[in-house]
Simulated assay, not measured.
Amino acid sequence: MTGIEKMKSQILDEAKAAAESKIAEARRQADEMIRAAGEEAAKQAEAILRKSETDVANYHERLESSMDLQKRTRILSAKQEVIAEVLGKAYEKVKAMEPEEYFSMLLKMVEKYALPQDGEICVSPADLKRMPEGFRDQVSRIAEEKGGSLTLSGEGRNIENGFVLIYGGIEENCTINAMFDAKKDELSDIVHRLIFSQA
């Protein structure tokens, strides 16, 4: 082998060795990139899985909360219906009172709402017709005891029941319906306690 051939062979061997070294380095870098990519993919998959589990848990929590709210809303609505029905029946019962009991109740209301002033009391045409004897006198006596006077209007007022008091042009609505409306919250609370506090 001549000197040139030796040199050529040496150059080729060095080039081959350099190429193999570069290929090996490239393979090593590729393997490292694949390993790093695999680890990153595993981390992302784990993060996605954890987020999915958290999302599912949050969804279930929201769903349970929503169902609980709907249940409580339905229960509240049902209770309000029952209370309204009880109050409606109570109102009907008051409307259906026998005259003696009814006018006795009106006298108690006069005691409560009469003012120490001169005024007028108006009742419905039906109540004017069925008014018991002595009712006017009892109303006058109650008003006097309060330091005022009440005159029973001879004209029936366009009301269903109860009465309207008029003092100096100012009217006080004392109809049964107005009493129920004014005391609706208080009566609802009483009915709620009576019916539902034992449940």
Score class of each variant (00 low, 15 high):
A90E: 13
Y91M: 06
Y91K: 09
Y91R: 10
E92A: 12
K93F: 13
V94N: 08
K95S: 12
A96E: 11
M97H: 04
E98N: 12
P99W: 07
P99C: 08
E100A: 15
E100L: 13
Y102G: 04
F103Q: 06
S104A: 15
S104K: 12
S104Y: 03
M105K: 04
M105A: 14
L106N: 05
L107C: 08
K108M: 11
M109E: 07
M109S: 07
M109T: 04
M109I: 07
V110I: 12
V110R: 01
E111P: 02
K112F: 13
K112L: 12
K112P: 00
Y113D: 04
Y113Q: 06
Y113H: 14
Y113W: 08
L115A: 09
P116I: 06
P116T: 05
D118Y: 08
G119Y: 00
G119N: 03
E120Y: 02
E120S: 04
E120T: 10
I121C: 00
C122H: 00
C122G: 00
V123D: 00
V123W: 01
S124D: 05
P125N: 12
D127A: 06
D127S: 07
L128W: 02
K129T: 13
R130S: 12
M131N: 02
M131I: 07
P132N: 08
P132Q: 05
P132F: 05
P132D: 06
E133Y: 11
E133K: 07
E133M: 11
E133C: 10
G134P: 03
G134E: 06
F135H: 04
F135T: 04
F135S: 00
R136S: 09
D137A: 15
Q138T: 07
Q138F: 01
V139I: 10
V139T: 00
S140E: 11
A143N: 03
E144K: 13
E144A: 15
E145P: 01
K146R: 15
G147C: 12
G147V: 11
G147D: 09
G147H: 10
G147A: 10
G148R: 00
G148F: 06
G148K: 02
S149W: 00
L150H: 02
L150Q: 00
L150C: 10
T151R: 14
T151N: 09
T151Y: 06
L152R: 03
G154H: 10
E155P: 04
E155G: 10
G156T: 06
R157Q: 11
R157A: 13
R157N: 05
N158V: 06
N158S: 10
N158A: 12
F163H: 01
V164Q: 03
L165N: 00
I166S: 07
Y167W: 03
G169C: 08
G169F: 04
G169E: 10
G169A: 08
I170R: 14
E172C: 08
E172T: 15
N173T: 09
T175E: 08
I176C: 05
I176W: 03
I176F: 11
A178D: 04
A178P: 01
M179S: 13
M179A: 14
F180Q: 04
F180I: 14
F180G: 03
F180L: 10
A182T: 13
K183G: 08
L187C: 06
S188A: 15
D189C: 09
D189W: 04
V191E: 02
V191F: 03
V191T: 05
R193M: 14
R193K: 15
L194P: 00
L194Q: 13
F196N: 12
